[in-house]
């Protein structure tokens, strides 16, 4: 871990869509500020559910979830909400809007409802959105509708939208799983740079061992709704992962 301060902590978290079919069983973890935490685990192991619980989208039946020192297990306050960025597996982009409009959605929590409804974003927000798109290398695609963009470009739009939120913590759910390895590595390099520049803590679900080793700091292995093993990214290899999961 790079820093002693904790950005995200869960203690004894239990979650079930319908009790007693627990998806998460007594999950406790901690992620330091500015760390990149990778969560690995087989399909159906509860990774997505864990991420949603940590993003405050799902409320656990038992246990405690703390983001930046604030408990969120009973809901995320309006003030804290923009500090938590969440990128779902399918990215959650509005396909019929342009790339720029999608990125500007990240600023919605800062503008008045009236302006938001009319789509009148202040000039400085538009500038910031364009800057985030430039940073992601998609500035020239601003006016393009999202459904016309390639997979990699969409990924960049999703990250730019999250950046415009000014988050302190970003939770990303296997969001590069649809890309080939070189493209996924390209996106993760960008994310890693952004994490360092903007002081953002990243937690992401990832199944590609090579990417975990290259881009992660801390690794959590989960299976059947439980944390089985925690280690540094350098310690991870396929044999170790298979051994732990089995």
């Amino acid at each position: 871990m790079r820093n002693g301060k904790v950005a995200l902590r869960t203690e004894g978290v239990w979650f079930a869509y319908r009790e007693p079919d627990w998806i998460l069983k007594d999950v406790s973890l901690a992620c330091s500020l500015r760390n990149v935490m990778m969560i690995m685990g087989p399909s159906g192991s509860g990774k997505t559910t864990l991420l949603k619980v940590m993003a405050g989208i799902l409320r656990p039946q038992r246990g405690k979830v703390e983001v930046l020192g604030i408990e969120i297990q009973r809901g995320v306050s309006r003030g804290l909400r923009p500090a938590i960025g969440y990128i779902p597996q399918q990215l959650g982009l509005v396909r019929s809007l342009t790339a720029l409009e999608n990125v500007l959605i990240g600023a919605l929590s800062r503008i008045s409802p009236g302006r938001g409804l009319l789509g009148l974003f202040p000039g400085h927000e538009v500038e910031q959105a364009r800057a985030a798109m430039d940073l992601m290398g998609i500035g020239h695609k601003a006016r393009e509708k999202v459904f016309r963009l390639s997979g990699g470009e969409r990924q960049r739009v999703a990250i730019a939208r999250t950046l415009l939120q000014h988050p302190r913590l970003v939770l990303a759910d296997e969001f590069v799983s649809d890309l080939d390895l070189p493209r996924a590595a390209e996106i993760l390099t960008l994310m890693r740079q952004v994490a360092e520049q903007e002081d953002i803590t990243f937690v992401m679900n990832m199944h590609e061992v090579q990417l975990v080793q290259e881009f992660g700091d801390q690794v959590l292995m989960v299976s059947n709704g439980q944390v089985l093993h925690e280690c540094s990214a350098q310690e991870v290899n396929l044999d170790r992962f298979t051994e732990v999961v089995q």
Binding site: I57, P82, G85, Y86, I87, P88, L93, I105, T162, Q165
Partner: peptide, 10 residues
């Protein structure tokens, strides 16, 4: 998922 993501930005 889109609703969740946009709701998530506040």
């Amino acid at each position: 998922e889109v609703l969740e993501a946009v709701r998530g930005v506040g």
